[in-house]
Amino acid sequence: MESTQVKTPQRESVWRRLVSNNNFGVSIALIILLVAMAAFAPNFTTLNNIFNVLLQIAQVGTIAVGMTYVILTAGIDLSVGSIVAFDGLAMAMMMKTGVPVVLAILAGLVIGGAIGGLNGFLVAKLNLQPFVATLGTMTMFRGLAYTISGGQPVYTLPAAFDYLGGSIGVIPIPAILMVIVFIIGAYTLKYTKFGRHIYAIGGNAEASKLSGIKVKRNTAMVYIISGLCCAIAAVILTARLDSAVPTAADGIELDVIAAVAIGGTDMQGGKGAIFGTIIGALIMGVIANGLNLLDVAQGPQRFVKGVIIILAVVLQVIRNRK
């Protein structure tokens, strides 16, 4: 009797699967937040405002996809803000000197990927700790951003480029770009061999290597992906502002890491998903947007953000206990 029960894999009930889903807690939190904001924040539920939230999180959300990959391998990428600033300036300056828009964007992607490649080289090949390695490149490329721009903004860019910061009807193009990155990022992580290798490496790098996974190459790859996401974020930001500045996206790494953490991705690697990161980014965006509508000042807003981050991590610890 007992042994037959063991052999046939049972199907879990839908409810149990839902509750034991890693994103259940944060999803509920987001829903509660949405209901609360809809009830108290004036104009929160207007279509315009909802797209506004998406526009506001477009940058953080896009970068957070790459960051999720990095954190899943138990790494971290502090250089994201500097890559955005440097890459934005590089693209803007190219366009200023007459490089066609499409070419400049392609070059921007290559630059973002290349800086990510440098991070990957430092971490995977030279075995530097990700925190320190990317702290280094973060400082380097912020410095280079100031250097190539002479500390001055670069503005009035071609209309074809600025178009990417606009909208189609009510839908902001940055939000569309972000959603595309989300979809590709989530699909790759969940359904491809590469994605599986990322989870394996984060769970146990040694066992992954012994299973024939090329740990170094895959680890380097996640930093390249992070760099590419930064390049897309640089396009979004530069196009929206119609200018590139060396101070752009300063400190954005903290918001990005917060989104990933709230989304339930384990900082020690191996556990997490893009879906959680999306929810995490939305929670951050909704809070900022709602509190703005409620006229709450920047100080208390930051405080609330911090509380949310801690709550999210506490939730995770409780989940992991059983």
């Binding site: 491809t192 989870y199 394996a200 146990n204 992954s208 024939g212 556990k271």
Partner: peptide, 27 residues
């Protein structure tokens, strides 16, 4: 031997993911 954060199925298929490829892209 094992990736403790992965499930039974994922651990078993890990060294030979090629065998469960649906198409060139996806598993």
């Amino acid at each position: 031997g094992l990736i403790m954060t992965l499930d039974i199925n994922q651990n078993i298929t890990l060294p030979a993911l090629r065998a469960i490829q649906k198409n060139r892209l996806a598993l």
